[in-house]
């Protein structure tokens, strides 16, 4: 895939720094993600990938630098921040479906409570989305009754229901049994094909190769490499990336 989108980028991070106490988790990170672009973030555990992802919808505030989404700097709080979050879908490693709500209610909650859609319309669209991710027949069940793969697909549907401009995925397949990884990646691949802007933290190298426009490699809070997937996997430039790839590609 080399159809990198043009025009004004959707997500721009400029010299972003973040500390957790003494720990410098994001060290002068600058990154821009174009509309329709799919960026895969990889790197060793603790390198700041999740934090990077979470700063983009301000689940984590930053200490310095700026983050711009769709031409606007991220609002600090209140209604404006809630609105921004409603435009950025997020998919978590541990699904985080609302445990006391059915799958369909999980998907319609945001549209009804945040976007003020009519319940009947939200329901119809919710069912269509569940159908799109292949779990329409689970609509009336509670999250705990579904397999991990089904829950993660429901979580993707919940995020899509907000009609987001971009989607953030934080290791969406890491908590899944191996046989369920494929069904979730298939949904993500089809989203990428449909032109969704995506930032995906993952160790699924197949997905990175086939669906990503760019691969970003992070280490110790720094953005170490930023390259097209083919190039990154063929010739990683930094020692850290070479070392990391040799570790994950051997098993």
């Amino acid at each position: 895939m080399d159809d990198v989108a043009t025009g004004e980028p959707l997500i721009v991070l400029d010299s972003v720094n973040k500390w957790f106490g003494p720990l410098h988790v994001l060290d002068d990170v600058s990154l821009s993600v174009g509309r329709g672009e799919v960026v895969v973030v990889i790197g060793p555990s603790g390198s700041g990938k999740s934090t990077l992802c979470r700063t983009i919808n301000r689940l984590e505030p930053i200490n310095s630098g700026t983050i711009t989404f769709d031409g606007q700097e991220l609002p600090a709080e209140g209604k404006a921040l809630a609105k921004l979050r409603s435009e950025v879908g997020m998919v978590f490693q541990s699904f985080n479906l609302f445990a006391h709500k059915t799958i369909l209610e999980n998907v319609t909650l945001g549209p009804v409570k945040v976007r003020r859609e009519k319940p009947a319309a939200a329901r119809e669209r919710g069912l269509a989305l569940l159908d799109r991710v292949g779990i329409a027949n689970q609509a009336g069940k509670f999250p705990a009754q579904l397999s991990g793969g089904q829950q993660q697909r429901a979580a993707i549907a919940r995020a899509l229901a907000m009609q987001p401009k971009a989607m953030l995925f934080d290791e969406p397949t890491s908590a899944l049994d191996p046989e369920m990884v494929g069904e979730v990646l298939d949904v993500m691949t089809s989203l990428a094909r449909d032109g969704m802007t995506m930032v995906v933290v993952t160790h699924e190298m197949g997905f990175a190769r086939h669906a990503a426009n760019r691969v970003i490699f992070m280490a110790d809070g720094k953005l170490v490499e930023d390259a097209a997937p083919a190039e990154f996997f063929a010739n990683p430039r930094s020692e850290r990336a070479k070392d990391f790839l040799s570790k994950i590609l051997t098993h």
């Binding site: 609105k83 479906l97 945040v114 919940r158 995020a159």
Partner: peptide
């Protein structure tokens, strides 16, 4: 994660508490 998911879809603090956290 429940409150985070609620905030991530744009629910306010009060909504997150009332709709997602307190019922559980």
């Amino acid at each position: 994660g429940q409150a985070e998911a609620a905030r991530a879809i744009g629910l306010s603090f009060a909504q997150t508490l009332r709709i997602v956290v307190l019922p559980q």
